[in-house]
Design a protein around this nucleic acid. Structure first.
Lengths: 224, 224
DNA sequence: CAGGTTTTCAACTAACAGGCGATAACTTAG
DNA sequence: CTAAGTTATCGCCTGTTAGTTGAAAACCTG
């Protein structure tokens, strides 16, 4: 006969802060994994869908309205992932625009994703899966909108991409390619120039702020 | 207090048969959904991972060695997806090369994905999600290897892509693009020409038969 | 061997990526 | 007010890639 595992939902919430990609973690105070850092989440309740559940749990940590994107990431059910009970976990990937600074509870904070502290359960692997998903989608979808403020200059956007991808990005090419693909739209406004001077940057926004696949293998497109 | 849902694993097994993309379904003989068609799968047992579990269940339907690819697709936990019990389901996407013809149990058979019979639970939506995942990955990954025989002619491959994508594909471009990306390799052999004559086709194979992301947004590649 | 069928390739056009340098538009210091 | 510094933007050039077309190659059958 089959067993009934407990089911938990988790979220890898990512934001570019201070020029680095960071993930939201809270520090455990109870066994197992006392002192280790864990992803926000919790038990699935009766009557709620998986997405409802992760939104409810996240609401205890951050304002859910600040999430610009939320998608299912991976489900892990390895019998040894939890030391005492059989547990299946469904992880989501959440993204927060870089201009927001949510209020956080005392036990919760942002951590640069390339300097993770000790993590609980299999959360370390889940975080890395989230980063890989984000990097891949930056390449073939318009998911940049979820990292960026509503309106931004090209160099701001270049810095966001560089932080998420982990390497330098050319602003010239980024602008040309995103404009040609019609993902970006000039707002007509200009940003006030910074303290160190320089030409004021034109401001852009993403034409759509919902996920769209943009980079399709031309050979495989339907004939026009 | 949280409940403990039962957990089932499912598989959307796809194959191009007779020039059409088809999915493996079995016909239910018991309530609920008597007579409706369902995805293969079953309960998660203690001590097994999700992937172990779906492989075990699939083994009752097809020879698991014939699966060229298996990846996690989606987890659904909508409280109304099952009429009597609270159930969370993790679906996998499995692919079978088009030259295999697995032995099937009596209640199990292939169904063209664009002429689905009445399906049980939320399996219809899961099947469509599987098709979308396949179509997307044909565009940015080398997943064609999982649909194709070990060795094949370009026009065979074109027909496979056309069936999976649902529209015509140019053989000339397909060959050039896949060769330039070094996904394909000529074997040097040639196929015997068919009954209606014609030039014998050169045979190719995929250089790698494990999943690789191939179509990366050039701006976002690490600088060389 | 003529005519039909299928595959393959060469050539051409158009679009795209990437790099570089010039110019524009602001700042602050003197 | 002007010069020097800073940042953003644009135009041009080069090499690469996608897509189309048409011709040639390599087989079959009658």
């Amino acid at each position: 006969m089959h067993e009934k595992p407990t089911h938990v939902v988790l979220a890898v919430v990512l934001q570019v802060r201070d020029g680095r990609l960071q993930v939201l973690l809270w520090q455990r105070a109870q066994a197992p994994f006392v002192g280790a850092f864990a992803l926000p989440g919790g038990y699935l309740l009766s009557g709620e869908t998986l997405e409802d559940s992760i939104r409810r749990h996240l609401a205890e940590k951050v304002d859910v309205c600040e999430l610009s994107h939320l998608e299912q990431l991976v489900t892990t059910g390895d019998p040894v992932r939890h030391p005492s009970e059989r547990q299946v976990a469904t992880a989501y990937l959440g993204l927060v625009p870089s201009d927001l600074d949510p209020e956080l509870p005392d036990d919760t904070d942002w951590h640069p994703i390339d300097e993770l502290p000790e993590t609980a359960f299999d959360h370390g692997a889940i975080i890395l899966a989230g980063r890989e998903r984000l990097r891949a989608k930056l390449s073939y979808a318009n998911i940049g909108f979820a990292l960026a403020p509503h309106s931004f200059s090209i160099s701001q956007l270049r810095d966001l991409y560089a932080a998420a991808l982990g390497h330098e990005v050319s602003a010239t090419n980024l602008q040309r390619v995103l404009l040609r693909r019609e993902l970006l739209k000039a707002t007509g406004e200009r940003r006030a120039s910074g303290p160190s001077g320089g030409r004021p940057a034109a401001l852009f926004r993403f034409r759509s702020r919902t996920l769209e696949i943009t980079d399709q293998f031309a050979v495989l497109r339907p004939p026009s």
